[in-house]
Structures are given as C-alpha cells and as structure tokens.
Design a protein around this nucleic acid. Sequence first.
DNA 1: AGCCAATGTGTTAACGTTAACATACTATTA
DNA 2: TAATAGTATGTTAACGTTAACACATTGGCT
Lengths: 337, 337
Amino acid sequence: MNIKMSDVAKAAGVSLATVGRVLHNNGYVSEDKRREIERIIKEMGYIPNRIAQGLKSSRSNIIGHLTLFNTNMQFKEISSAISAAAANSGYHVLTLTSHMGLGEEEQQINDLIGHRVDGVILTSYHSISKDLIGRLIENHIPVVMIERTYDMPMVDRIVVNDRASSLGAVRHMLEKGHRRIAFIGSKLGHQVEEDRYAGYLDALNEAGIVPHEDWVQVMPEYSIEAGRMAIDQLLRAGQPPTAIFMTSDIYACGVLQVLYERGLRVPDDLSLIGYDNTLSALLSPPITSVGLPFKEIGDHALQLLLQRMNDQAALSSTIGIDPFLMDRHTVREWKGD
Amino acid sequence: MNIKMSDVAKAAGVSLATVGRVLHNNGYVSEDKRREIERIIKEMGYIPNRIAQGLKSSRSNIIGHLTLFNTNMQFKEISSAISAAAANSGYHVLTLTSHMGLGEEEQQINDLIGHRVDGVILTSYHSISKDLIGRLIENHIPVVMIERTYDMPMVDRIVVNDRASSLGAVRHMLEKGHRRIAFIGSKLGHQVEEDRYAGYLDALNEAGIVPHEDWVQVMPEYSIEAGRMAIDQLLRAGQPPTAIFMTSDIYACGVLQVLYERGLRVPDDLSLIGYDNTLSALLSPPITSVGLPFKEIGDHALQLLLQRMNDQAALSSTIGIDPFLMDRHTVREWKGD
DNA sequence: AGCCAATGTGTTAACGTTAACATACTATTA
DNA sequence: TAATAGTATGTTAACGTTAACACATTGGCT
C-alpha cells in the first residue's frame, strides 16, 4: 500500500526516530545517514500521511469555507481570494456550499468540526445562527466572518464600508449634474443591502434631494430578470430617472438588455453605476461599478484566522475594507433637472 | 478540549465498544443503554473525529479537485457541479487551483496524496503530466479526467463531444442561409479548441464552403480584449462575415462591445453563436450559445470515481457528453451570398 | 582521571477510532 | 440436562506519526 515512515526506516536500517529527524530537520543525525535517508525517501516516493500527523497534532492544515450557492458573483471572487491566500500559507480549503434554508447548515458545521478544520471563514448571506457559530468556538475553531457578521466574542470580522462607497458612487452622479437618481437593490434586511441603500439616501440627502418613491426598486432576488423588471418600472415613471445606482452588477445585465431592446443607449440616454465589479467589464457598454478589493479581503481573512490560532483568547478584531469606484464612464454630464 | 468517544463512554458508564455500537448502529446494545448513550452524545455535542476515523480506515472522505486559475467560466461551473455531487454522496471537496507553468502542480499532487484523498478529479487545461497522474495511481487514488484527458490504465475519462456540437451550431447558421461564417477561437493545441475548430470546418465542408482564411481568428487567450481584437479584424475583411461562431462566451463579450460602439445590432447586422452558455444569458442581447450539461458532468465524474473505488482494477471507462444548443435567436435568416 | 557537553541513535507511549476477539448471561431446543 | 444460539458488554491491538525519554559514544576541559 502506501509507503510509510517505517518502510523508509527499514530500508535505511535506522529507527523511526532518525527518519523523523531527517524529515523535520531537527535533532542530531550524522551527515551520511541523513543523505542516505533523504535518498531513500525520494526513491520510495514517501509522502507523510497528513491524517496521522493530524491525529497526533490535532491540526488538519485545512480551513473550512462556508458560502452560499447561486449567490452574488462577488462572493465567488472572495472565495478564490481566500483559497489563494490559504495556499500561500500552506493551508488547503474545504469549501462547503449551502443552499440556505434547507437546514443543511447544521450538518455542514458538524462536518467542519468532524474534519477538525483549523479555522472557518464565512461569507455570503448565509443563515448560520449564532448558535451554530458558537459550536465552532466551543470546539476551539477560529471563525472569521466576512460582510455578514455577528458581534460575538472570539469571532473576527471583515466589514466592507458599503455605505460610504455607495455614498461616493451616488455623489459621483450628483457631481455630474444628475438629480433624478434611481436605486435598484435587493430585499432589505440584508445588512449589505441596507448599507448600500443608506449610502444612496445619504448622498441624496446631502444634495437636498428627496428621493421619489418611484425611483426606488427593491427586488426579491439577485437576477437578470429582476433587473429587467426594475428598469421597466423605472422607465414607466412619470419623470423617469436620468441615472441609476444598482447594488449588484447582475441588475445591470437586465437593465442593459431592456435598454438595448428599446434602442436606448448608455450613457447617452441613461447613466448607470453597478456594484461588485464582477460583471460590469463584460457588458456592452462596460459600466462603472463599485469594486471590492477581493484579494485584500481574502488576505485579511486568512491573516485574522492565523492570528487567532496563535491567541485563541484575544479580543475580537474587525477590519474595515474600502471599496473603490471603477470608473468606466457610464455617467454622463447632465444639464437639466 | 474536544469531546471524544471515551468521554461519552465514561459519562454513560459503559465501554468504548458500546458507544461505538450505538454510533454505528451495529451489534447488540440494550434499548435503555442505547437511549442513554444517544442522549449523552447529543448533550455533550460529541462529533466523531474524522481524522482518527481516517487513520483507522485509510479513507478521508475527501475528494481532491484540481483546476486552473482564471480559466474559462465553464470549468467553474463544472467545479460547482462536482462539489454538489460530492456532497450528495457524503464527500467533501478539496479544490486546488493551479496557476500553470509554475511547477506548483507537483506540490499539489503531493498534497493530495498527503491528505490521502479518496479520489481526484481533474478539469481544465492543466499541465499535469502523465507522470504525476501516475503517482496518484501508484498511491491507489482513483483519478477522473474531464475534457482534457489522457489514455492511461486506471484513469477514467469524461469527454465532451465538442466537435459534433460545434458542427451542429454552425449547421444552424448554414440552415438560416449564412455562407460567410467566421470563427473565433483560442490558440490551437488544446484538444477542446481543436475539436471546436474541426466541427466548424466539418460544417462548412458539408455545405461545400471553403473557409476564407480571414474568417478564422485564433487568439492567444480567453479574454474580452481578444474578442474585441478578433471582431475588429473580421469587420475589416473585404467581405465581412454575416455570422460568427465563437468557442467561448467570453469572446462574445468583446464582440458585442465593439458592435455596440459602432452601432451595429445583433442579429440584424451580425449573427452570433457563443460557447459555454456561461455568460451568454447576461449579455445584450442574450446570445445563442452551445451549452454544456454541467450537472450531468459533475454527476458522472463522481460516479466514475465511486465506481473505481469499488474496483480499482477495472478497465478505464470513458463517458461521452453531448452539449446542446441554447437558442436565444441571435442567428437571423440570411438571404444572399 | 573524572566530568560534562555535544552528538548520534533507539524505544515507546500517546493521538481517537475501530473491529476482532473474548466473555458472560439468558432462553431455546434436542 | 447439556449443548447451542442469541443477546449484551468489555478489552485490546492496530492505523502512521511524533516527541519525550533513554542510552551511548565522543571530545574537551579542569
């Protein structure tokens, strides 16, 4: 079967301990034996059994990552960034995808505990309760939450300053002269969505504009179809908006499709800003979008995890992330009301 | 620390074996003890340590998945499908992403062996050599290759009938009356790309058309920019094509952008078919694309893996997958030459 | 010479789970 | 009545790795 340390030891005519010392580069081993053992290891293709190592050390070298199926693209990007960061630190990532509301999350938390992962990173609008996260903590598994966070002892957080960046994006429209600025977002209740909506209101407020209720389209889901319905409503309004701020690029897809069908052009007929910066570059035209620094988020998440592995009892820390405005010039100058 | 079987046994005043019998539902346990032990397990929150189980059984319940960074979207979809299929069978997936050409693949193969994964699924145009795959086989780890496959004993394969479906897609254009049909693909050498190109030629051949060399744009990468450059070239041709078949939706993004800028419309001015069906629904307009049955591919991959776990020595099997044409009406009727 | 530090090597008891084996008590049945 | 099958429970040796401990041997120092 698989070659083990004892096979190497036997082949080299030494004890397990000596092979161990060669493998870990510690203790005393005579130069010639070291070389011989190294040769044999390579020749036999010996690879340490991480399962046995894990049992001994109670560390699996695996990080668990819980995310949501079919979610906003931005979380897929964050997932990639986490994997990359983990690989750089010698960890591997076990990604579990939840389909929300099926009660599978409890199972998944148990699976992660069962596998004795060295830490867990949570993204997306998962429906994991504080209770379930508490279970991880009880088992001494560090937890980092991204975007959707709980205020719990021993749990570290990465929060994105969605409100400020939304404010910035809408301010950008105001600066170009727009006054009738619409909003397309997803069902409120998600912290992220509330923040983006709040930022939108902040900007209008700042400019002394009272948002017309027709301008605010809150959709039940992230989808192209939702985007299509939203723009359809907006175009129907008595005073249609001259610019639209959307909380996800996916809405922009639907919006652009409807505009394309009706022969309306961006930004000539309508100015647009999306959010995520995940799809915006693909579209016709590529649209201005609020971008999240995915790599930075992944790096910070891992860093928080490693930090807590070293000091389980430390106070919770929170890292704030600032999105940026990726300007692709889909907000035109607007003269008028 | 973590609760273990012996803690449960002690709390229940029984031996390890009895707790084991309750956990595995085998052997004889008196009804009252069983209930008492189950109660204690729940109360103490005991979760079996999979690492210890793995050491005993030499099975990790983890499947390794090797894929490529920044690749065609279709492989991300296949990855998701694999994870879903694995979850259904009680496995978890450890996904390793290679950046190709950095020689990190050897490390990754070793990592997978080290973790004693129960099987490995390979997707994408990875640069894993037969040698490295051989190392997995030597360690009795079943391997399934998707799309890019090797003919090796003990290695099972999933091949997509790209040639036939490309033929079908181009035939669809021919049937609508198009004669000047262009091709945008990626650098040949990838089997997948060669097949798609061959299918394109097959169709033209069938119709007795000799493809003009200006019509064939072979790009060095999958990117929007490549799509933009390709369409730019095609529009410059003396006799510009009336329809374009592309080997990836990502090219369609670039193509549509350039057409948008120039005020050309799809399919009025130009007919398009993409490939992947990953982005095509997002675009303006949504375009017809060759779709791959991702779920089916993931399910088959897992099935092959499980099959081989049961019979290591079986002959290699190959499953053929047929793509379908997702018609979004971006090929118009064409009267003329 | 006697002692100590440095060097080189081996033995063994964990880590948590599993399953083979052993033991013992009942209730049948020939 | 004694053998046997069925029920109920416990003991223990693995799985592969690690690290604490133990034991030698050498060389240099007082």
